[in-house]
Design a protein around this nucleic acid. Structure first.
Lengths: 165, 165
DNA sequence: TTGGAGTGTCAACAAAGCTGACTTATTGTG
DNA sequence: CACAATAAGTCAGCTTTGTTGACACTCCAA
């Protein structure tokens, strides 16, 4: 893949082409969230619950403060979501073993089960989009997305990649 | 950490790789909306106003029903937003020339000005992401996004592309 | 022992979505 | 013409998810 002429053809990107990219991003994001949203709507949960569950699954034992930073919401907002998840037995909050002010968050079996349903639905769509677009498109997709993140988000995203995989 | 995922390696897309795509989409979308959000926060507007302005700019003279379909929200929800935009003199609502039940929506000069500020901000980020990622990445990005849309969204997206460009 | 960090919670509020039930024009059709 | 259907707008009320601000409690570290 020659990167050499990268600048040139980009110089001719019109506002109209950029606008189409913006609209593609908007419509695609709606597709991206549609499947989990449908599942969540059948229970008393919303997208905020999904996000919490997702990142607890991703980094089991994470603290509340850490989750707060990843999600970028206020403590009060997250706490409302977290509280219902704990009450419903989807999330377990354990007192931190070294620092007992901290709470380490884990998914229970029921929590894992819901997380699976949700991310399965999302992965099915993602996988099919990847298949339709082809392997080279996928790496381009990822490159543009990463370039589109704020510096702070990029940091968070990268730190998750270190843990995972 | 092998970075190169091109070619036949797609057949072996792991759940973990898909999960990274999901997270990239999540963080990127936040970057995508961050700049307009910052501008909107300084006035009494939110993302819903931005979307209305965006699509009126895109399809001047559009009817309320058409906008409703593109945005996929209820009449009541859109109306609340539209009403403030009309009151504030950013949007003009003209009685339809052929069918007087319809209202054709247009941006006023002030509306155009705000639209420009918002989409400039968004385009700057988009352009810089495109430049960072390179031209080939851009076409891949667009391919995956289109494949990720729901059928209905894809239709709406395509119909906008016909008009524009 | 005291300051500050991590957590949880109360109250109040706002944005933006929703449902359901209407009204008012206007248009097209039988 | 009469009437049903369509486009738009509105009222009331509810939900989710975000926000501030204030405060309490626990615990770590200097």
């Amino acid at each position: 893949m020659p990167e050499s002429h990268s600048g040139e053809s980009l110089l001719y990107l019109t506002d109209e082409q950029l606008r189409q990219g913006i609209e593609a991003m908007y419509f695609a994001y709606r597709g991206f969230t549609a499947d989990p949203d449908r599942i969540l709507a059948t229970m008393a949960y919303g997208r905020a619950h999904h996000r919490a569950i997702h990142f607890i699954k991703r980094a089991p034992g994470t603290t509340v403060t850490n989750l707060l930073e990843i999600l970028g919401v206020t403590k009060q907002s997250l706490n409302r979501v977290l509280r219902t998840l704990i009450e419903d037995g989807l999330v377990e909050s354990r007192v931190g073993p070294s620092d007992r002010r901290e709470r380490n968050l884990f998914l229970t079996e029921a929590g894992e089960a819901l997380e699976n349903r949700l991310s399965d639905a999302q992965r099915v769509r993602m996988r099919s989009a990847y298949r339709d677009a082809g392997p080279e498109a996928v790496s381009g997709f990822r490159k543009v997305l990463e370039a589109m993140m704020d510096g702070e988000m990029k940091r968070r995203y990268a730190s998750l990649r270190e843990n995972g995989s």
